[in-house]
Design a protein around this nucleic acid. Structure first.
Lengths: 69, 69
DNA sequence: TTGTGACTATAAGTCCGTC
DNA sequence: TGACGGACTTATAGTCACA
């Protein structure tokens, strides 16, 4: 169980559930498009401050993004 | 609801539940003692790879550390 | 629309202390 | 045992051009 993979997978899952592109999510969360791309592909070990921005943009509770599905 | 505060509070809670000192937890998680101190006082935005190390050391599931109590 | 390599700037994280 | 500071190194943040 790798937290970076679980998080990245969940971001992709909830982003697609909301019908958002990476670019739109990037805009909503105040981050960069390629940054979203990287973390969905497990290329980055993101810090908590940005985790919160993404959770807010996806309108999910933060801890939900860490639950393996 | 601030993820850094929730996380820091939970680390302190579970650490004390296990009767560990900050220094002992630091050793067990492979991190630095001042770092544990800082994050319990909400002074740092920790990265995911270290969140996992701490969760492992505390023997709790990662997502539990993000649930507000 | 997304993946990828490359890059610089800044924050994360370490280590030395003192109180 | 833990709070706190200063100086330092390393990882992540943040951005771009191009596939």
């Amino acid at each position: 169980m790798d937290i970076i993979r679980v998080f990245g997978s969940n971001v992709r899952y909830y982003r697609e559930q909301k019908g958002l592109s990476q670019e739109k999510l990037a805009e909503m969360s105040g981050l960069h498009r390629t940054y979203i791309s990287d973390l969905e592909r497990f290329q980055r070990s993101i810090s908590l401050s940005n985790v919160q921005k993404i959770a807010d943009a996806l309108e999910v509770e933060t801890h939900v993004l860490f639950i393996e599905k």
